[in-house]
Write a protein that binds this DNA or RNA. Structure first.
Length: 561
RNA sequence: UGGGGCGUCGUCAAGCGGUAAGACACAGGAUUUUGGUUCCUGCAUUCGGAGGUUCGAAUCCUCCCGCCCCAGCCA
């Protein structure tokens, strides 16, 4: 089932919006925005915000803008802008013609700053970075007024214009709001509004050498776009008084309102941009879209569906509690989607040859297999059966434990969609002792039913024809970290999971999979859900990524005994 | 330490003075040509703690405890 683009369940933000609507605020409009800084790829945490903001717009028949919050040229680039656009589209959301850039507001923001100066609410400060820090005071001690705090409006106007004109070196001056150096909230101690930074901007080039700070640019960008509810994460709660201070002075009506919610934390991974960049730059992963990454592009390449991510975001809810969501919930959401929608196929990951002695040599039978056991409308496919097949190595045990219901000496099993076979003998490599092939016999009457004498055959295993199957590469992914909360560790790289990727080169897939298109997903029966790799799948030569294994109650039983 | 925020099941999360939703996880059982799916069943006498108000408190009051955020010319 496709998941709705917005969740219908309520939360404290929807309660606030309902109240605002009831009170007749903003002419009944709801306008949100998703404001990423294009200095990295977006991840599942951003997806939570995307679903929230766009979901709200859909639910209240409002709008949600996409705005690049590009006020600090360091690290920002068009590559990131493009990835963000691609990822949000893929998630299923649409901002129509409302793609905006804070950098497009630079001139307007500059004029707002001039207005503030004229009113005596901002001044040019010539303290250097160290001095500013010293003057700021500490949590327990109030700050001191800058000696430049009382410059005349005229001087401030002149200096600010010259800052813009590039007359001063980086760091020589800043524009500061004149608020209160003794404010208990440090954010309000004459916050910096503009800094001089000679850094080419990926959009404005060398036009500007002064750039507005987040606190100044963000609230005004919201106002310029007529945003009604500016939703951000909890760490900005301290900044809300400043948001309001600026907006109250510069915006007359329909002032946007900031609301904060708790950012997502996911178990067994990291979500901070700094740490993700480190994983990429130090090559612990193959890139931003490595299937082990919690980035949207990584999840896409891994095989996650947009529906499953939306469903996940709806399931975790929105609140203000710090949280660490169990990655099992994310996995549950893809399984739910893929169980419903992914066609089934057979693929043997670690092949063991089986020769069916009583099956005629050279005979090939086309067996009809359902593409989905519960959805006949998904059709059937033909799978060839012959004398030599491959089964999974772990589906045979010479000396099986209790409750093992697969193949073993003296036992029989059902080949999925095919016959019941019985073990006859095995061949071992003399040197290594490794089992190289099995000999079995099949019961011809069991294609569509139980053995003639009605005896029960418990186990069912998957298989492929030795002759007709195709070789494929399969990549088995596991969690990137060995501990549930690596983000809490200073030295988080110590906890990287050395087994997060296992590459299997000799898998055998039914031939129908040979031409799998990139990003198509299947359930390999009895194994899990797999997705043809977006980049490495070539025509006739697919590479499959394991999205997530099937739930495995046998593994639990086997682990106990 | 000053300020801000948050504490309800292992993990999320409803609850807004009328007697603890739901989801994931976990544990049983049924059905099954995927040890999958599906279906039943169980899973907080209790809401960080202690007092108080009330016929009645997770919800109101008081005090205490714990965790998170803020001292970038990052966002």
């Amino acid at each position: 089932m496709a998941q709705p683009l917005s969740s219908t369940s309520s939360d404290f933000i929807r309660d606030i919006i309902d109240e605002d609507l009831r009170a007749g605020k903003n002419d009944g409009r709801v306008a949100t925005r998703f404001p990423p800084e294009p200095n990295g790829y977006i991840h599942i945490g951003h997806a939570k915000s995307v679903c929230l903001n766009f979901g709200l717009a859909l639910q209240y028949q409002g709008t949600c803008n996409l705005r690049m919050d590009d006020t600090d040229p360091v690290g920002e680039s068009m590559e990131y802008v493009e990835s963000i656009i691609r990822d949000i589209r893929w998630l299923g959301f649409d901002w129509q013609d409302r793609l905006f850039y804070a950098s497009d507001y630079f001139e307007k923001l500059y004029q707002f700053a001039v207005l503030l100066i004229k009113r005596g609410d901002a001044y040019v400060c010539s303290l250097n970075a160290d001095e500013i820090r010293e003057y700021r005071g500490t949590f327990t001690q109030p700050g001191k007024n800058s000696p430049y705090r009382n410059r005349s409006v005229q001087d401030n106007l002149d200096l600010f214009a010259r800052m813009r004109a590039g007359e001063f070196p980086d760091g020589a001056h800043t524009l500061r709001a004149k608020i209160d150096m003794a404010a208990p909230n440090i954010v309000m101690r004459d916050p910096i509004l503009y800094r001089i930074k000679r850094e080419p901007h990926y959009r404005t080039g060398n036009k500007w050498v002064i750039y507005p700070m987040y606190d100044f640019a963000h609230c005004l960008s919201d106002a310029l776009e007529n945003i009604t509810h500016s939703i951000c994460t909890l760490e900005f709660e301290n900044n809300r008084p400043l948001y309001d201070w600026i907006v109250e002075r510069l915006i007359e009506k329909n002032r946007p309102r900031q609301i904060e919610f708790a950012r997502l934390n996911l178990s067994y991974t990291v979500l901070s941009k700094r740490r993700l960049i480190e994983l990429v730059e130090k090559k612990y992963v193959a890139g931003w879209d490595d299937p082990r990454m919690p980035t949207v592009s990584g999840l896409r390449r891994r095989g996650y569906t947009p529906e499953s991510i939306r469903q996940f975001c709806a399931a975790i809810g929105v609140a203000k509690n710090d949280n660490l969501i169990d990655v099992a919930l994310l996995e549950h959401c893809v399984r739910e989607d893929l169980n419903e929608n992914a066609p089934r196929a057979m693929c043997v990951l670690r092949p063991l040859k089986v020769i069916i002695d009583n099956y005629p040599e050279g005979k090939v039978q086309q067996l009809t297999c359902a593409n989905h056991p519960q959805r006949p409308e998904m059709g059937t496919r033909q799978v060839p059966f012959c004398r030599e097949i491959y089964i999974e190595r772990e589906d045979f045990m010479e000396d099986p434990p209790k409750k093992y219901n697969r193949l073993a000496p003296g036992r029989e099993v059902r080949l999925r969609n095919a016959y019941v076979i019985k073990f006859e003998s095995m061949v071992k490599d003399e040197k290594s002792g490794e089992i190289t092939e099995l000999h079995c016999t099949y019961a011809p009457e069991t294609l569509d039913g139980p053995p003639a004498d009605g005896r029960k055959v418990q186990g069912v295993i998957h298989w492929v024809s030795a002759e007709h199957s195709v070789p494929v590469e399969v990549r088995l992914y596991d969690r990137l970290f060995t501990i549930s909360d690596p983000g809490a560790e200073e030295d988080f790289l110590k906890f990287l999971n050395p087994a997060s990727l296992e590459i299997l080169q000799n898998c055998r897939a039914e031939k129908n999979l040979a031409d799998a298109r990139p990003l198509t997903r299947y359930q390999f029966e009895r194994q899990g859900y797999f997705c043809a790799d977006e980049k490495d799948t070539k025509p006739g030569k697919p590479v499959f990524n394991r999205v997530v294994p099937l739930r495995d109650s046998w593994a639990k039983i086997a682990a106990v005994s």
